[in-house]
Simulated assay, not measured.
Amino acid sequence: MLDYSKVVHNILSFPMSCSSGSVVTLTECASIASGSKSARFFFNKNEHLCYWSCVFLSNGTCTMLCISPWSAYEVKWKKNSALRKPTIGSSVHEGNYRNWDPHFATDGFVQNGGTQIFHSTFEHYPWIWIDLLETLSISFIRIYNRRDGGGQRFHDVAVEVTNNSVYVQRGFYKGPAVTGEIVDILCDYPAIARYVRLRITEGSGNSLNIPELEIYTT
């Protein structure tokens, strides 16, 4: 089972559309969340309710899951190792690096609009690559989807890792996401690598639009 820890829930990222069920203990809730590959889950100690596989949005008001007797739990991690790390994109929309450079995806700022984000051209399999600068154990990837429209463009995304030139898939998000969603992609164990690539693997005319991504390592 995955190792979770209790967190103070951020009301700027509120949950909706969760799977839910009755449980006897917190451990049972954690086991369900682990089996569903949920990076976050919620437990109500009074009513013994468990919520997992939630859709998280980055704007709006807090729901009942943000207040007692609900508690939020998240897969344990130490730091966001992607912050300000080198990035490369498969392409840049219209060649406009001023507005859509890959480095905007790891600069620590989540933009509301459609500029100052990573925006690839429209192609079959767009990708973004991040160099963590050291070999680390990767827990999960958190992607902040664009907030001004086009959220459905984020779909069929594979998390691929390598220490050389041979990539191995360690996570996958089917989607499609919705506008303003915060997507967590839990990595299979082990995901120990220096280089991480997020790549759309299905469809045509695809474009990666990523205001910010975080790579949580242990």
Rank of each mutant, 00 (worst) to 15 (best):
I67W: 00
G175Q: 07
F122G: 01
H119T: 05
Y189V: 15
S139M: 11
T106L: 03
V196Y: 09
F56K: 11
S137T: 10
I130W: 10
R40Q: 11
D3P: 09
A72P: 01
Q111S: 15
K85L: 14
I138Q: 05
V183A: 01
P86S: 00
T61L: 13
T218E: 15
P69I: 06
D101F: 11
F42L: 04
H124Q: 15
S120Q: 07
Q116R: 02
W52E: 13
G203E: 07
F42H: 12
I88Y: 12
F104A: 08
H124V: 15
K37W: 14
A177R: 11
G60D: 04
E74R: 08
N145T: 10
T63R: 06
V178C: 00
I117C: 06
G95F: 04
A30Y: 03
E202N: 04
V55T: 10
D101R: 04
T121S: 14
R98A: 03
Y51H: 05
S139G: 13
L133G: 08
S19P: 01
E28H: 13
I88S: 12
S17G: 03
H103W: 15
A105L: 00
H119A: 09
S58H: 03
E47N: 08
V157Y: 01
E74Q: 01
N164A: 14
P86N: 05
P102K: 08
I88T: 13
I192T: 15
I192N: 11
F109S: 01
G60K: 13
E214C: 07
G175F: 08
G149M: 09
V159H: 04
T179P: 06
R199V: 15
S81N: 04
A177T: 01
